[in-house]
Amino acid sequence: MPKWRIGYRTLKTAIGAALSIFIAQLLQLDFYVSAGIITVLCISVTKKESVRASWERILACLVGLIYGSIVYELIGYHPISIALLFLLFIPTAVAIGAKRGVVTSVVIMLHLYTIEGVNVEVLINEILLIIIGVGVALIMNMYMPSNEKDLTWKQVRLEDCFRSIWKEFASYLRFGDNSWDGKEIADAAAFIEEGKEMALKNVDNHFLRNDDYFYHYFKMREKQFAVIKSILPFISTLDRTLIQGEKMASFMEELSQAVSPGNTSAYFLVRLNELRNELQQMELPQTREEFEVRSSLFYILHELEEYLLTKKKFKPDPKRTKTVSAKRLNRDHEQRDTK
């Protein structure tokens, strides 16, 4: 059963709706409660989304007022007019990119139907309701709590998963240990998806700067994770008695220790090239099994190169790199203290 709580968005919705109704009532507007309804509809999860949704609703309401004025005055105020009005208005709202404003506009158009008359005072009343409802929602949405702390922790946890995966790969190559349950694979996939979603919200909460570091970071890790998954079935085909398997294990173990927001790919690309040269200097395979092992080694080397080149293209943020390192260090100290 979900835990009962009042979130910041619920709080903003409650305060915004009450404030809109208060202002509309203070101005003695007809249907003043509708200002609160408009505010509730305009509260969004990000600042940019709020602006986009508000613009769509304003545009749709203005078109709805024009359509309503024409249809009601030409045909009259009865249910057939409402049916015809909706048949004309809804496709128009979708065509002009204002489909999120349909519900709000319906409320406004039904006000005209209730009053059974269209004049300047009525139109001004409806426009003021729209301005109050949308305006208060925009003000409420100016506050969005920062999720950078959560994103940083996702980053730390994801790198922990990568570190564990490479260690498990190295362990299998060295000892043939197959007791690993692969939990880090599932965890890494979840952290990447959650991280990307949170990062997109973070971008949409900034008007003056395009803070997309975290989004690019999780996209980079997503590409690397695809490489990790592609390597997994080939690891089990390597014979741990081969010296090349031992060297590959040492490489992966070293790689696990270097998983961080910083960029150490240049060093590992050099090490990878050394491994490749060693393979190329080996004698040709004499048996089918040797051929399959050699093929697996070359494939893994190719994928590891893709993994490192993906990281090489990523531009780390020095400030955030220090923050991640500090959080990981503090967490490690806390874990040691509890043992």
Rank of each mutant, 00 (worst) to 15 (best):
I6S: 07
G7R: 00
T10G: 15
G16E: 03
I21T: 08
I21E: 09
F22V: 09
L27Y: 04
A35Y: 05
G36Q: 04
I43G: 08
T46Y: 00
T46D: 09
T46E: 01
K47L: 07
S54L: 01
V63Q: 11
G68S: 03
G68M: 04
S69D: 05
I70Q: 00
V71R: 02
Y72P: 05
L74D: 07
L85Q: 00
I90W: 07
A93L: 03
A93W: 05
A93F: 01
V94M: 11
I96Q: 02
R100E: 15
G101L: 04
V102D: 15
S105F: 01
V107W: 00
V107P: 10
I108K: 09
Y113Q: 03
G117Y: 03
N119M: 07
E126D: 08
E126S: 02
L129Q: 00
L129M: 01
I130N: 00
I132G: 06
I139R: 10
M140I: 08
M144R: 11
P145K: 05
E148S: 11
D150V: 09
T152S: 15
V156D: 02
R163S: 15
E168F: 06
E168V: 07
Y172C: 10
R174V: 12
R174W: 05
G176H: 04
K183E: 14
E184I: 01
E184Q: 04
D187T: 09
D187N: 07
A188H: 03
L200S: 11
K201H: 13
D204S: 01
H206Y: 07
H206A: 04
F207K: 02
L208P: 08
F214M: 00
Y215H: 07
F218L: 05
K219I: 11
K223V: 10
A226C: 12
S230Q: 14
I231L: 05
I231P: 09
T241Y: 05
T241S: 13
L242W: 08
I243W: 13
G245D: 00
E246S: 11
F251V: 03
A258P: 04
S265C: 07
S265I: 06
L269I: 04
L269Y: 01
V270Q: 14
R271Y: 09
R271M: 08
R276D: 11
L279I: 06
L279Q: 10
M282N: 12
E289Y: 06
E292M: 10
F298P: 14
Y299S: 09
L301M: 08
H302N: 14
H302A: 14
E306Y: 10
T310F: 09
K312M: 09
K312H: 05
D317N: 06
D317A: 08
K319V: 10
T321L: 00
K322E: 14
T323Y: 08
S325G: 11
R328F: 09
N330C: 13
N330H: 14
Q335H: 14
K339Q: 14
